[in-house]
Every structure is written in C-alpha cells, then in structure tokens.
Design a protein around this nucleic acid. Sequence first.
DNA 1: ACCTTTCTAGAGTACTCACTCTAGAGTCAA
DNA 2: TTGACTCTAGAGTGAGTACTCTAGAAAGGT
Lengths: 202, 202
Amino acid sequence: MESTERPRATTARRGGRRQDIIAAARRCIASHGFQRATTAEICEAAGVSSGTFFHYFPTKTAVLAAVLEEDLETTRLAFERIRVAADPDAGLALTRWREHVLSEAADDEMAGFVAAVGTVPDDDRVTAALQAESELARQVLTEVAAAGQRQGTVRQDMTAEQVALWLSVVADGLLAHVAEEAASADVLGLQLQDVVDRLVRP
Amino acid sequence: MESTERPRATTARRGGRRQDIIAAARRCIASHGFQRATTAEICEAAGVSSGTFFHYFPTKTAVLAAVLEEDLETTRLAFERIRVAADPDAGLALTRWREHVLSEAADDEMAGFVAAVGTVPDDDRVTAALQAESELARQVLTEVAAAGQRQGTVRQDMTAEQVALWLSVVADGLLAHVAEEAASADVLGLQLQDVVDRLVRP
DNA sequence: ACCTTTCTAGAGTACTCACTCTAGAGTCAA
DNA sequence: TTGACTCTAGAGTGAGTACTCTAGAAAGGT
C-alpha cells in the first residue's frame, strides 16, 4: 500500500507525530467541540492511524489536556510580558493586555475553543489547566491594577481584584461575541481602548 | 408492577408529560451539557419512559429546541418591558435591563446553559432560536441606546448599535464568569450599575 | 358496550466511537 | 545477522446511546 506515503501534515518533521496530533486535535476541537471531534477525525487530520494516536495518548481527554497545557505555556509568556510592564507603567501593561486579548480574538481557533471546552468530562489535568489559566490572568491583572492605583491612573473605589475581575469579564465577553460573529471583531477592537479606559480611570 | 405509581414529577398535572420532559431536559442539559445529558437521564428526571419521550419529541435535539423556544418567549417578554421604558427614560430601561441580566446570572440553570449549547449539532430550530434571542437583545438595546442619545444621557461618539454591542459583551462576560465562579456574582451585581454607567455616559 | 385515538412502557435494535490487539516495519547496537 | 525496542497501521471489540417497535392501558366519542 502507500502506508509510507502518508500526508505527514506539514509539521511532521519538527516534533514528530505527537505534535501533529496535538495540532490536529486543537483544530478539530475548536471547530466543533470536544465531544463531536472524534478520534477518527483527529487521526485523519493528523495523517495518523488510531494505533499511533493511542500510542502517544492514553485517552482522547489526554490530548485535550496536552493542548490546554501547551496553550497555558503561551499564555504564561504573554502575561509575563504584561506583568513586567506594570511596575514602571500600568498603562503600558494594559495596552499590552489589550493587544493580547485582541490577538486571541483574531485567532479563530482560540475563539472557538472557549465554548468547546465547557462541557468536558471531569478530568484533573484539564480542569487544572483551565483553572491555572484563569487564575494567571486574574493574578497578573490584579497586580497591574494595583500598580495603576499606586501610580494614580486607576480608580481606587474598587479593589484591584475587582478591577481585574471586570477586565476579564470584558475580555471573556469579547471573545464569546467574536466567536459567534466574527464581523464585530474590528469595531470592538478599535473601541476596546476607550472601554477599558472608562472602566478603570479614577 | 408499579407502572401507574410513577413519580409523576411535581408538575404532572399542569401541561402534562410534555412540559415535564421539557423541564427535566432543561435541568439535565444545564448541569452537564447537551451531549452528556442522555435521553435516558432526561426520562428518569421527568419520571417518564423512553417511549413517552419519543412520542412527544422526534429527536433529542427537538427537546433542546423546545427548551430554547420557551426561553425565547420569556426573554421576549422581559425585553418588551425594557423597550417600553426607553421612550420616556432610557436610564430606566437600562436599569430594567441590568435587573434582567442579574436575574439570569442568579439562575444557575440559565448560567450553565450558555456554555452547554455551544457545541450543539447544526439544527435549524436550535440555531434559529439562539439567533433570535441574541438579535432580540441587540435590537432592543440599540433602541434604548438611541433613545438615550436623543435624551442626552448616552454618549454620541459611538453609534447606538455599537453601544448595544458593548452592553451585550458585558452581559455575556458576566454570565460566563458567574457560571464558572458563582462567588463573584454578588460583587459584580453591585458594581454593574457603575460599570454600565461609565460605559454609556457621554 | 365498542371502537378509535392518544398515550405509555420497556425491551429491542442499529450504530457510533473510544479504545485494544496483533502483526509488522524502521532503527540502532553489538 | 540478530535481537530488542519503538513506532505505526488498521481490523476488531465492547460499551453506550439515540431511537424503534409492539402491546396494551386510558380517555373519549357514539
């Protein structure tokens, strides 16, 4: 047969099959949810057989966990950049945060993901990754808000935690809206600065 | 056996089995998503056999559609109240809207629902109901915003549509946050007025 | 009483899908 | 070469689940 002539995806060489599977799973899950993304579909998208799939991952849920953990690492880097900016200038940190949010909104894989993951079985690694991600955002945003309060650019009639909470509410709402109506992304992107500014200023 | 001695749910008399099934389906779907809510589970929750279930609904998806259409009717009423308030006083309409949003947030069934429905198969009635619901909100909020602009209480540097869009972004984000962390509901509720005010004022 | 229609139960069915198993190919070391 | 190991394919399996089928109970009309 043509068993050696498989598609091999485009990323076959760097990272090997395992990476191919993670990437394919991300795409499939983002586009129609965790439950409806079958292992067979992920296998086909990755150019891999079910044998290979289960050689690398014990369960379908484990691939989701791998995807989320990979994303968490990316998020960690992004928020590290935001955090370091806060100390001299909270305004700059907020700008970087807005850019981060908008880049997530622009990435349609990312946009679909949030909704797709809501109904996932109770898996420890999955819930840990999700929780770590939201906790990370909340914590860094809280630091940024606190820095802004010290610098006088952020309102003091709310605690820094509360300001951070509202910022993530806005970010989540924005992602959800863009996910189901990509058209609104541009307008919202342009106005995000104004909205955030109104939200946080003293 | 005790076939006549079934639980009969509490609402058995008014509306009959059909209503029981819809109510049970709403609970089950809200608590662990559409896919994971099995027909068997819904049947048990409704105190009904699978035969009865499929006598009233051709498919599992059809029950979801029925649930959504029922909710749509409720939403329609709520937004009608909001719309009529807008003409004399847009501020009052916004207050009513905030109350509506908070009451949805307080209802934990409602909160779980948004996430649960994201990954649903492409069904015409379902998508129609969802679209009608968001369209309804957007349209009424746009009218309210426009009224506020005429009355001078709402900013004019955004179109009424855009103000409405941001309001629903905030509402969606708030619901999502409350769904995964009920604790934050109280704080957010208290501050919603301030946030909305900052968002829309000239 | 008798027929018709609607409703109900629950065993049965057909199918999907996550996961297993086995056989073998590729690779490297000695 | 041989042996040990990893990787890969794909047919197969078992569990779960949406939906069907049939027999019969209520309900209602005449």
